[in-house]
Design a protein around this nucleic acid. Sequence first.
DNA 1: GGAATCACGC
DNA 2: GACGTACGTGATTCCT
Length: 866
Amino acid sequence: MKKLILIDGNSMAFRAFYGLPLLSNQSGLHTNAIFGYARLLEKLIEEEAPTHFLVAFDAGKSTFRHKQYEEYKGGRQKTPPELGEQFAPIRRLIDAYGIKRYEVEEYEADDIIGTLSRKADEEGFQTIIISGDKDLTQLASENTVIYYTKKGISDIDRYTPEHIQEIYGLKPEQIIDLKGLMGDKSDNIPGVPGVGEKTALKLLGEHGSVEAVLENLEGVKGKKLKENLMEHREDALMSKSLATIYREVPLDFDMNSLAFANENAEEKYEIFKELEFESLLKNMDASETEDKKEFDSERVDALDQLGADVSFHLEVRADNYLVHGPEHIAVTDGERTFISNAEDIDREGLEQFLKSRETINVYDIKRQMGLLKHLDIHFEDFDTDIMLGSFLLDPSKKIIDVAETVGQFSVNIDSDDFHYGKGRNAKQPIGEEHDKFLTDKVMAVHHVGPLMAESLQKDDMYDLWKDLEIPLAKVLSGMEYRGITVDAARLRDMESEIKERLDEIEGKIYELAGEEFNINSPKQLGVVLFEKLELPVIKKTKTGYSTAVDVLEELQSRHEIVSYLLDYRSLSKLQSTYVIGLQGEIKEDSRIHTRFNQTLAQTGRLSSVEPNLQNIPIRIDEGRRIRKAFVPKDDSHVLLALDYSQIELRVLAHITSDETMTSAFTSDTDIHTKTAMEVFGVERADVTSDMRRNAKAVNFGIVYGISDYGLSQNLGITRKEAKTFIDNYLNSFPEVKLFMKSIIQDAKRDGYVKTLLNRRRYIPDIQSRNFNAKSFAERTAMNSPIQGSAADIIKLAMVKYEKSEEAQKFNAELLLQIHDELIFDIPREEVEAFIPVIKDIMENAMALSVPLKVDYGYGSDWYDVK
DNA sequence: GGAATCACGC
DNA sequence: GACGTACGTGATTCCT
């Protein structure tokens, strides 16, 4: 069967443009309409499988309709330049798909489509017309359906004659009569005054056409309506004529030339790449493009047959490389590849091999180091890590597996999920297939190594990669492997103690509620609070009543049960996440070995998993007691904690060179008090605790990039008051205000912002027309350089510590990093001597225009460190 | 297995 | 004025 798709080219460009956020690629070209177009074409090709295809465009400004009616399409808004620049690429895209494109002087796209759909009907085609203009529905017939796209392009209404009958009670050819009577604002077609859709449909229901209505004016009810029709009969007839699609456009081609073959994958690929359409590129990789890199390498059966520059890969499916050892090994020098089961590896041979290489490239150093430890090998002399590189190039790209990363360099190999399967489809591949998978993987890593270095070089992040992230991975590996000693007995005691208290509170809650229910279920709790006890609903969530802390706090005075609920909440959190959760993480060696994720947080911060040791309670003493369970390796040691004081605000003072702020830090005055003095215009002595609290919250907001709404929530004030605070703040620190403005400009100009060490964060939404998205993007632009630079500094300190000969003379062990804080285990007798050394490294990790200040404490458990 | 809600840290 | 509001991880419930 022959199937023809006709697209109303201009109308779809507008729909795509207004339906999608304003995207742009790195060279600054806006791409949202092009992207929408590409997605539309992909979808149509896949779902409709057309045999013939054409996109019709309007040509020039003047058409035969303008001769008939000068004001035709008058009053239209100018095409925004952001869209205008996308027309040429859209045409190129259509050509790349091998789709016929047509426009002709004097006629509109509608007329071309009308003419072709008539011909198609005559020749027995099935035709689909795609448009965002309802006028086209007049072309619907038994074999022609109109896909009308609402809201963007993904939401499609299908107009068949039956459908049109259903909604209007009209035949398709009567659509023009409808337009004749009611007119069309968007095309500046007048119609008859006072006649809208309702009246027009009524008239047409009675008479059938504009002409028939005008001939039977006596039968029309309503004096004014009759008058209008009489007076504007010419308008009505002209309007109908304007709305009528001309179906006899002279065309210099026949239907055969519309044949569609779905070829030219290469050209498509080029365009997608240039415009950075990642999702579409991935689609192509998965389906059509057979440009899978075939890695030819000779299989060798001994490591010593490999050259000096290699890529190295230990493979295990499991996430936790500290628990699970390697199952396979794959090493290549680009020409020869060695593959083996891990159990067959000769430990000494491998260690010797690693030590004697010139360069070693890997994907995920920390993981490789962790896996090597299972073979009892401590080796860290890796040179490059393409996973870390990929994260630096664009931290917003999720780090998934080797396939994902090398895919960004047009190298296509099977993903881990595909090879191993997921869930019930999980496989344990072996033999030839698995060997090929491993070969492809290590070859891909090897191939991408130099490309990665080049890309990072180009983006000024090569040093950040080689001198910071890669050395840091080795430091983190040591910390993960080392672990931190935890006193399980201590947690067990806490568990039973908390259990008793929870049971007691639970009983009280049931008693006050008059029934037993699951207190942990917000849904059930909501019913009890807001239906049974009829407490006022303060806030709703998407699914029902909110029972969050701030809501409960407001309800506290209204019912006795609420205080018990608050206690229950915080206690059960302590119990499940920390007291019980942590016990489950203690390994044979009585230690907890968290893993740090170096490639996740957008700002460049680390995160910590299994368990998360970066959110152990501290603020409330009850929770803080959890820290009593974290202890040094033995009685002769202590835990030492050093934290940067106000590192983000110091970074801000440095970046902005704000005088007031700089002098506050240079003279080491309390920054929140100083802020309060400036914002409220008072002397130091007159700063009340309330003022300081407010100032602190504003500083907090600056550091974390919260909105006026967020600040209002934090302080329990109105958004307006919060905004006033922020405005006052910015006026008190004029250079900060200036910085905020210019960083947003930078983000707009470059598409990204960067930290002191050139770490980037792309902010595409800075161009968004969606207020929320844009505001969020602006706050991100302001905040990321601050938080990211702070992350750079502490990372640098960690690397410098590891490299410091002086520091290494001590028997100190770095255990944890908590964003602005480092935790060490160290012999008690060394601690006093060590403190000035490590403090110096941290405070001088990077030279800023304000001093960095480090506070510290030590003790015989983590609670005691204050 | 995933979404939603809640709570902990910086 | 819109509209939902720093970043993470993890536990729990509840639905598919």
